[in-house]
């Protein structure tokens, strides 16, 4: 087990390095640079800026400098916002995104798994139909549409919930529902199909032949088996939700991390692009790793060497 963990960490570092190389190369391949914006600056000023930020150095030298700083935990200064470092963005933005993501993850899990279970056990009946309708809507309607509709109903018409900011716990409800919609629908469908499949397995028939109640058959024998595929997709889902969504955070004006994913690319804010990408990747790798470890707790057939 210890060897396996060490091996996985080593592999993660390699993955991360390849990812940094690719992102760095692609970023520099996009035409333009941090200072070729729509503002009209003279050639001389442009040159001076590039000089100051070492943007005239060969790309490989820039890369070397970046890695050196990165190893010191310094993600660099933003090219766009004066006096702001990328570390600041993450320190300021991640708690907001993380909090929203965590709440959304809990909401998604608490809603989707029971929904999937009910749909599977009431297969073909109205409960199943209802869950499947919700699940189909959740997958097909984009989150920004859900967000707008929720805002219209609960904020504008009913006036129950705020439309923006992070002033109170109430501010998190609408973004949570809007952002979790897709994952909720996806996981509910997965749970349903997985449980349906498990309920048809021979060992469920064996359990029934023992004379144990249907409730025990489901809780002891079916659910754990049915959860295995759900756990598989949980890693990327949690990472996605927790690292923030550009769309949802923009709509609800939440000062999270998500906004930087998109704006930094438009602005050619090199250090921010690198910073948030590395942060997201590290987070994703870590969560997937943790989920993999959880796997062997639930499934004895999986042993890590």
């Amino acid at each position: 087990m210890g060897r396996y963990i060490a091996k996985r960490i080593g592999m993660s570092v390699v993955t991360l390095f390849v990812l940094i190389c690719l992102t760095f190369a692609m970023m520099h391949a996009i035409p333009g640079g941090p200072f070729t914006s729509d503002r009209n600056v003279t050639e001389a000023v442009q040159q001076a800026l590039n000089e100051k930020y070492h943007l005239n150095d060969p790309v490989i030298v820039q890369f070397g400098n970046y890695i050196k700083d990165l190893l010191h935990g310094d993600l660099g200064m933003s090219y766009q916002y004066q006096g702001k470092s990328v570390n600041d963005f993450i320190v300021d933005g991640f708690p907001v995104s993380g909090k929203l993501g965590l709440v959304t993850t809990i909401f998604v899990l608490l809603a989707s798994i029971p929904m999937g279970i009910v749909a599977a056990l009431k297969n073909g009946r109205w409960q199943d139909m209802l869950v499947m309708v919700i699940a189909t809507l959740g997958v097909t309607i984009p989150s920004f549409v859900i967000a707008t509709m929720l805002m219209y109903l609960f904020s504008y018409k009913l006036g129950w919930l705020p439309t923006f900011g992070i002033s109170s716990w109430k501010s998190f409800i609408l973004p949570m529902v809007a952002m979790g919609g897709y994952s909720l629908a996806f996981l509910a469908r997965l749970m349903r199909s997985s449980l349906l499949e498990v309920m048809g397995q021979d060992y469920i028939r064996t359990a029934r032949s023992k004379g144990i109640s249907e409730f025990k058959t489901i809780t002891r024998h079916a659910l754990r088996n049915a959860l295995i595929p759900v756990i598989t997709v949980l890693g990327p889902t949690i990472a996605n939700l927790v690292t923030g969504s550009f769309v949802i955070e923009s709509i609800f004006a939440m000062p999270g991390l998500g906004v930087h994913y998109v704006t930094s690319i438009n602005n050619r804010d090199y250090s921010t692009i690198m910073g948030v990408t590395i942060f997201y990747a590290t987070f994703l790798i870590a969560i997937v790793f943790i989920v993999d470890l959880f796997y062997c707790l639930i499934d004895p057939r999986i042993r890590y060497e």
């Binding site: 060992y203 032949s209 023992k210 144990i212 088996n225």
Partner: peptide, 22 residues
Amino acid sequence: RTIRGDRIAMVFQDPMTSLNPL
């Protein structure tokens, strides 16, 4: 259910899938 298992028990065809793997 009080009869199943206690008074009448059953052995199935495929032992590879008849036991709960977990």
